[in-house]
Simulated assay, not measured.
Amino acid sequence: MELTVYLAGEIHSSWRDEVKEKVRSLKLPISFVGPMENHDRSDSIGEEILGKQPNAVLRDETASSFNNLRTSVLMQKSDIVIALFGEKYKQWNTAMDASTALSLGKPLILIRPEQLHHPLKELSSKANVTVETVNQAIKALSYIFDTE
């Protein structure tokens, strides 16, 4: 059995690389998908496809439509969603992706530091599992494959 995991969360740090490396080291049969990690391309994809937009609002709206298409397709094809809430960046996209996963009935592993417990308490109570670290999320994934 191979699983596909959607990695939702901020695209500014290397947390996805950490997850992928640790899963590879454990030889777990998992492949990963997620949002466009090239921030500039994510912001400009609307103009890349539709051409120059007349203002910043339309530039953002066109990019959002293509990014939402990508998220929708890849998340629907995933078996599990891991949503990481960090402390450094605004986490609106992470909240949206975690909520989307729940509405699609996708199992959700929520990673959030203890200090974000209160603002994420409702989302956390709906997630299948809430952990505080990437390592704990990897252990949760690994447990799926344990036979004894």
Score class of each variant (00 low, 15 high):
D97G: 02
L123N: 01
R24P: 02
R16C: 08
L7G: 03
K126M: 13
D97K: 00
L110H: 01
L116K: 12
L7M: 10
L3Q: 08
K20Y: 06
T147L: 15
Q76C: 07
V129K: 09
Q115Y: 13
P113I: 07
M1K: 10
R59W: 02
D40P: 03
S13C: 10
S42L: 11
G105Y: 04
P107L: 06
F32T: 09
A98D: 01
S78T: 03
L28G: 04
P107T: 08
N55F: 02
M36H: 14
L123P: 00
E122F: 09
L58R: 08
F66C: 06
D79C: 03
L141G: 01
F85C: 04
E87K: 14
H12C: 06
L120H: 02
K52L: 09
H39F: 14
A56Y: 06
S31Y: 11
F32M: 05
E21A: 15
H39P: 09
P29A: 10
D40N: 12
V19M: 14
K52W: 02
V129R: 12
A8Q: 04
A63P: 03
I45Y: 02
K88V: 14
E48C: 08
T100A: 08
V131E: 06
G105C: 10
T100E: 04
S31N: 14
R112E: 06
W15E: 07
F145N: 06
P107G: 05
L74I: 06
L110K: 02
V19P: 00
G105V: 07
T130D: 07
D17T: 15
S44I: 05
K77G: 15
E47W: 01
K20F: 07
G34D: 06
E21P: 02
T133Q: 05
R24A: 15
S65N: 06
A56P: 03
K52V: 10
E18T: 15
M75K: 00
A8V: 08
K90T: 10
G105Q: 11
K121H: 14
V5P: 01
K22C: 04
S124R: 05
L102I: 11
R112N: 08
W15C: 08
S14Y: 13
Q115C: 12
I144A: 08
F32Y: 08
Q136I: 11
T147S: 14
E37P: 04
G86A: 02
L58Q: 10
N67A: 13
L26G: 05
Q76N: 12
T62F: 11
V57K: 13
A56H: 09
P54R: 01
T4K: 15
H12E: 15
A83G: 06
D97V: 00
P54H: 06
R41C: 09
V131L: 11
D17V: 13
L123K: 00
A140V: 14
H118F: 11
P107E: 10
T71S: 12
F145M: 07
L69I: 13
L3Y: 11
L58H: 04
F85W: 03
I109V: 15
I82Y: 03
N38P: 05
P107I: 04
K88L: 13
Y143K: 14
W92D: 13
L84P: 00
S78G: 05
V129E: 09
G9F: 02
G51A: 05
L102A: 07
P29M: 05
I138K: 02
D17M: 10
M96N: 00
G9M: 04
